[in-house]
Design a protein around this nucleic acid. Structure first.
Lengths: 201, 201
DNA sequence: GTCTATATTTTGATAGAC
DNA sequence: GTCTATCAAAATATAGAC
């Protein structure tokens, strides 16, 4: 939960605004955007009525939009760090998987938000996923892996899909409780399965 | 589109009721359940006003519930056929992938409905995915594959996730247009990637 | 700056005439 | 059995008192 606050770039001191964001994140991630009313958000944020929400956000959509922007900005930063700390695409992808599993444990609602929500249904004006800097960076890492010979010479988008098809679906299983152990339990075998699928042998 | 009608077990003669189902399927699959109003459905089904919908369905949720039941029943039947026609789990899984890719081409809205919608958000009373007969059958096929030595000895749920993580994510890419060629183009490499990930070598 | 009250809008749903 | 009219409910959003 503290981790969730950090990811939203919110100062530790819990302002009303940040409490609204945290409450909305949790509700959106678990019940979905359309099943979450402003009344729900106010209740969970310990606010008496919905009016006060409008002191901080112009409307419901803006709450979701800010979450979307903040979470993807944070993800983008983390991937930048991983990119700087590691030279080889294989190491960069491994770092990314580590990050996603860490988030799954420390900030599950952030991961639910990332993996389970269909953004275009309630944020029609935001860029599609594959135009976000975070995605583009990952895509470039895969292209670099193909170029340097670590990854098989296939369509980079197919490599992306096969790799993150495994990683993301596993995380979704953990978040849904279908896989019932701690995220960390599945990290190594998930990495191996995903990486072995695209590595050049 | 004709295929979509067949999958919903609707007689070729287009009754008003079936036109409503088809329209709802297309709208739900593309815009989402909550972004689809009865007015939208009436319009797409060439009905003057929403009142007429209530001659055929008790409410909006029931339209979605019937689609859910029909589509999963049809899927279950198809998997039964595949199961009967093939002896080895490897062949049965291959048959299932063939089926899903064929559906992607012939009935894309059915596949969007299956893979993109979060049923528990609007059908809280339906069984979760992993309790549907269709899923259980696939799961048993994977268990049989582990028993007969075709599939590596791993947690069957992990095998399921790794296999269909690749298959479903690829199909979602095709449906979203991120992979822009005909579904058939990606069938073989997707099968190989998914199968090689779980096969015992 | 917090709360009451209310406006507005949408949409799901019904009643009843023809 | 199709269409008009309308209801009811819920949820978003605003105005303004204190």
């Amino acid at each position: 939960m503290d981790q969730e606050i950090e990811i939203l770039n919110i100062t530790p001191q819990t302002t009303t605004s940040s409490e609204i964001s945290i409450a909305a994140l949790k509700l959106f991630a678990t019940k979905g955007y359309f099943n979450t009313s402003l009344t729900d958000i106010a209740k969970m944020a310990n606010i008496k009525n919905t009016s006060e929400i409008y002191q901080h956000f112009t409307n419901k959509q803006v709450i979701a939009a800010q979450l979307y922007v903040d979470i993807f900005a944070n993800l983008n930063e983390s991937i930048d760090e991983i990119w700087l700390k590691n030279d080889k695409p294989s190491e960069q992808l491994r770092g990314t998987v580590d990050l996603l599993f860490k988030l799954t444990e420390d900030a599950p609602d952030v991961m639910r938000f990332l993996l389970n929500m269909k953004f275009n249904e309630f944020l029609p004006d935001e860029k599609p996923l594959q135009e976000t800097p975070a995605f583009c960076k990952i895509y470039k890492i895969i292209q670099a892996g193909i170029t340097n010979g670590e990854i098989r010479n296939i369509d980079p988008m197919m490599a992306y899909i096969q790799f993150f098809g495994i990683v993301n679906t596993t995380i979704q299983g953990i978040l849904a409780g279908v896989l019932d152990k701690k995220a960390d339990t599945y990290l190594l075998q998930t990495w191996l399965a995903a990486w072995n699928g695209i590595v050049k042998k």
